[in-house]
Amino acid sequence: MAVFTEVSPAQAQALLDHLRLGQLSSLRGIGAGIENTNYFVDCTGDDGHLHRYVLTLFERLTAEQLPFYLRLMQHLAQRGVPVPEPHADAAGDILFQVAGKPAAIVDRLHGGHQMAPDAFHCQQVGATLAQMHLAGRDFPLKQPNLRGLAWWREVAPQLLPFLDEAQASLLRSELAYQEQLAASADYAHLRAELSGPIHADLFRDNVMFEPGEGPGRERLTGFFDFYFAGCDTWLFDLAVCLNDWCIDLSDGRLIEERAAVFVAAYESVRPLSGAEHRLLPALLRAAALRFWLSRLFDLHLPREASLLKAHDPRHFERVLRARIDRPWHALHDGVAE
C-alpha cells in the first residue's frame, strides 16, 4: 500500500461538503497502488443511504496533466463504458485540492478483483477494452503516453548501473529493437489511424467483477485507475492486457488458448487490421519492456511513502524473454480473421 499524503477526516469532509455528497462515515487508505494516495470514502447521503467513493490525491501528475485523465473517465462513463465517473461541483469542476495536493473523488465500483482469470473473464475484458477504444475516438483532449518510448529512452541509462551483464544486454538490445519498430511504416500507420486514448495499465487489479448467474460466471463491473492513460496505439493497450490476463505468472509464458479468446472477444467489437496482426508480437515485447523498466525504476529509484512495496521487476524480465523466445501471432494460433 502507498500512502504518500495523510488525509484527515476533516479534510475529507470538507470535500464532501463542497460536492454535496453527504456526511463522512468511514475513511480508509487503500492497500494497493504505488503512484497516488488513495482512500475509500463512505458517507451517508441526503437520501439516508450509504454511498461509496474513492478519493485520490495525485503525487506525480500535475494539475495541468490531470484534466486529461479525469475528463477521459467522464467521457467514457457518459458513453456507457463501465468506469468510475468523477464527481463535479456546481461549476462543473472535477479537480480539487486536498492536503495541498490535486485531488478528485470518483464512484467506487462494485465487486472485487479476479486474480486467477479464466477464458470467461478474458472474454469480458477483451470486448470491453475494444468498446472503450471506440468510445474514446471523439475525446477531444490529447496527451501522450507518459510511459512510452520517450520515457524508456530517458530512464534506461539511469537503470543500467543496477543491472547485471545479461540484463543490461537485454535492455540495450530490446530498446534498439523498439526504436527500429517505431521508425517502421506499419507502426506509423498504427499511430496515425489506429490509436487514441488508452488505459495503458489494465492489469487484473484494475478490473472489477461481481457474482453473476451460475457458479464461476462473474460479471465485469468496470475498469478503473486511469492515471497512466495516454494517447497511443490501441494495439499497445491490447498487448499490455495479454501480458497480464493471459500468462502463467510463474514463468511469464503466454497461455495461448486464453490469449486467443481475449483477442477474439476484442475483435468481435473492433477487428484488428492486417498491420495490427503483423505487429502484435512486437507490441507484446514493447508492453513487457515498459513494465520491466517501470518496476526497475520503482525498485532502484523509489520515492518515500508511508507504506510502499515495489513490485518485483524480475517478473516482467521473464515476460520479455518469453515474448522474444516465442513470438505469438494471433491469426496463426486459432483466432479467425
Rank of each mutant, 00 (worst) to 15 (best):
L27C: 06
A156L: 03
D251W: 10
L293D: 05
I247R: 02
S250G: 09
F162K: 04
D333G: 11
T5Q: 09
H311L: 00
A135I: 05
Y177A: 12
T221Y: 00
H133D: 07
R204E: 10
R219S: 02
H87F: 13
Q124G: 07
L181S: 00
W245I: 05
E35K: 02
Q180K: 08
E35V: 03
A119R: 10
E154M: 04
L190S: 11
V155N: 00
R270F: 12
P211R: 11
G45C: 10
L301A: 00
L279A: 01
F236Q: 14
A310M: 02
L149W: 08
V54Q: 11
L55C: 00
L50M: 14
E193A: 14
L308E: 01
L242D: 01
L129S: 07
A32M: 10
N145R: 12
D225K: 05
D89Y: 08
L283K: 11
L284S: 14
D225E: 04
Q114P: 09
P86Y: 13
S250L: 11
V41Q: 09
Q167Y: 09
V7F: 02
H121C: 05
E64K: 15
P9L: 13
E276Q: 09
A104K: 08
F209K: 03
W152N: 01
Q78R: 08
W245H: 09
L296Y: 06
G100S: 11
R217D: 14
Q167C: 08
A288G: 04
H133N: 07
C246S: 01
S8M: 11
A176M: 01
A182E: 10
L175N: 01
D42A: 15
L19H: 14
H332W: 12
V335L: 00
A288K: 10
Y227Q: 06
V54N: 12
D164W: 14
R204N: 06
G222E: 02
P9W: 09
G33A: 07
A176K: 06
L194G: 02
A63E: 13
H133M: 05
A264V: 06
A310S: 13
L141W: 05
C241R: 04
N36R: 01
L272R: 05
D107T: 06
E256Q: 15
F40P: 12
T56Q: 00
L190V: 09
T56L: 00
L163Y: 10
G136T: 07
L254E: 03
I94Q: 10
P281Q: 08
V3C: 02
Q65T: 07
P281H: 06
F4T: 04
A77R: 09
C43D: 10
T62Y: 12
Y69H: 15
G136I: 12
D248F: 12
H121L: 08
